[in-house]
Computed example of a mutant assay.
Amino acid sequence: MRIHETLARAARLASSQRQAAELAGREEEQRLWIQVKAYRDFLASTGQVYLFEDYLEGVAPTLRPQVSTAIEARPDSTSRQVMTLLLKTFDETSEKQYASVLIHLVNFIAATGQLEACEDYILHRLEYAPLAIAHFPTHAEAEAWLNGLAQPPSPADILIGDEYHLAWYSREDNARGLERDSVIEPYIEELVARGIPPTAPSFATRAEAEGWLNNHPATPFEFVSIAGEYYFAVHHKRLKRHTLHPVASSLAEWEEKKRATERAEVQDLAAKPQGNDA
């Protein structure tokens, strides 16, 4: 079974456990299951799915999964509480394979020294822009980076200029590529609907706007006006940079993409064979 399917089934186990906790009114357990999902989101957002697959292959088989010493050393941490819950679930569930995957997922993050980065990701997800793992000025530079990696992300967002792109890789056939990813446009749409502040900072040039943003980082978003046109400034804290997205053209492209998606769905529905009424 491929790692993506394994993770999907493990996620379904976590989701069913969270729903059961919610129905039973076990609020603390529900919170911890939400945390389990966040660990998986961190793994996926940072493009480490195949690295995790390699980690799983190197884990010695045991009757009951072991806890990473890095987690054992943090008895009062949320990760230790999560691990206690997962071990209890492993003991009680018939889906031990997928409970084990969730345990090893937390172990992987701890063993690779990423607990603090993961906890920062979880605690500040609403304060940070959608995660991008790298930035390149041009598409050619991004392609050279992707093609030069022995183990590309699988997948993860990167920035090319001011735009998000999804860098993807399929280990099974060694295929890899870049495609435009519309992850910031929904934010622009929602915040424009709330209203652009009339006090949005105004600048004559992009250089002036960038200089101001360096001293007044967006948290994580800010509308600015440059030469009479509104831009959506996005602060990428992890990459220590801002991107500037022209509001009017970004919304126009987003509307066209939504219409294209709707047309494709209608065509797919029309192409499906219809049952006989007789």
Results as ranks from 00 to 15, higher is better:
residue 243 T to H: 00
residue 134 A to Y: 00
residue 277 D to E: 12
residue 69 T to V: 12
residue 171 R to N: 12
residue 163 E to V: 07
residue 184 I to K: 07
residue 60 A to Q: 15
residue 225 S to P: 02
residue 6 T to D: 06
residue 224 V to W: 00
residue 173 D to G: 10
residue 249 S to D: 11
residue 137 P to A: 09
residue 204 A to C: 05
residue 254 W to N: 15
residue 89 T to G: 08
residue 258 K to L: 14
residue 179 E to L: 13
residue 185 E to L: 07
residue 5 E to Y: 07
residue 47 G to Q: 03
residue 163 E to F: 03
residue 194 R to S: 08
residue 202 S to N: 08
residue 124 H to R: 15
residue 216 H to N: 15
residue 40 R to A: 04
residue 58 G to K: 04
residue 267 Q to F: 08
residue 16 S to E: 14
residue 26 R to P: 03
residue 30 Q to F: 01
residue 122 I to N: 09
residue 169 Y to D: 07
residue 110 A to K: 04
residue 61 P to S: 06
residue 275 G to H: 06
residue 195 G to T: 07
residue 21 A to Q: 06
residue 117 A to N: 11
residue 126 L to N: 15
residue 77 S to N: 04
residue 203 F to C: 09
residue 59 V to C: 13
residue 110 A to H: 04
residue 130 P to S: 09
residue 86 L to V: 03
residue 206 R to K: 14
residue 195 G to Q: 06
residue 21 A to Y: 01
residue 231 Y to W: 02
residue 34 I to D: 11
residue 177 G to E: 04
residue 224 V to Y: 00
residue 277 D to W: 05
residue 78 T to Q: 08
residue 31 R to I: 07
residue 160 I to D: 04
residue 93 T to W: 03
residue 38 A to V: 04
residue 238 R to W: 00
residue 256 E to Y: 06
residue 14 A to K: 05
residue 218 A to E: 01
residue 2 R to E: 09
residue 207 A to V: 13
residue 90 F to E: 07
residue 109 I to V: 15
residue 254 W to F: 14
residue 153 P to S: 12
residue 134 A to Q: 07
residue 32 L to W: 00
residue 99 A to R: 03
residue 67 V to Y: 03
residue 146 L to F: 00
residue 177 G to W: 02
residue 266 V to H: 09
residue 93 T to I: 06
residue 184 I to P: 05
residue 135 H to S: 13
residue 255 E to R: 13
residue 275 G to L: 10
residue 178 L to F: 03
residue 91 D to V: 05
residue 97 Q to N: 15
residue 85 L to N: 11
residue 206 R to H: 11
residue 83 M to A: 07
residue 11 A to L: 10
residue 217 P to Y: 01
residue 23 L to A: 12
residue 121 Y to G: 14
residue 252 A to G: 08
residue 68 S to A: 12
residue 68 S to Y: 00
residue 275 G to A: 12
residue 266 V to Y: 06
residue 34 I to H: 07
residue 116 E to P: 12
residue 40 R to K: 07
residue 192 V to M: 04
residue 236 H to F: 00
residue 134 A to D: 08
residue 243 T to S: 06
residue 86 L to I: 03
residue 137 P to R: 12
residue 89 T to S: 09
residue 159 L to H: 02
residue 12 R to Y: 07
residue 175 A to T: 14
residue 234 V to S: 01
residue 142 A to I: 02
residue 73 A to Q: 06
residue 222 E to I: 01
residue 245 H to R: 15
residue 220 P to Y: 01
residue 52 F to Q: 02
residue 172 E to K: 10
residue 57 E to G: 09
residue 222 E to V: 01
residue 61 P to L: 02
residue 205 T to G: 10
residue 253 E to W: 01
residue 91 D to N: 10
residue 234 V to P: 00
residue 6 T to P: 03
residue 14 A to M: 09
residue 262 E to M: 10
residue 193 A to M: 04
residue 133 I to A: 05
residue 224 V to C: 03
residue 221 F to I: 05
residue 138 T to K: 08
residue 184 I to C: 14
residue 77 S to C: 05
residue 34 I to C: 11
residue 73 A to P: 03
residue 67 V to E: 12
residue 45 S to H: 12
residue 77 S to I: 03
residue 223 F to M: 04
residue 30 Q to G: 14
residue 137 P to Q: 08
residue 122 I to A: 10
residue 185 E to T: 13
residue 102 L to E: 08
residue 19 Q to K: 14
residue 239 L to G: 02
residue 48 Q to F: 00
residue 273 P to I: 09
residue 150 A to R: 14
residue 86 L to S: 01
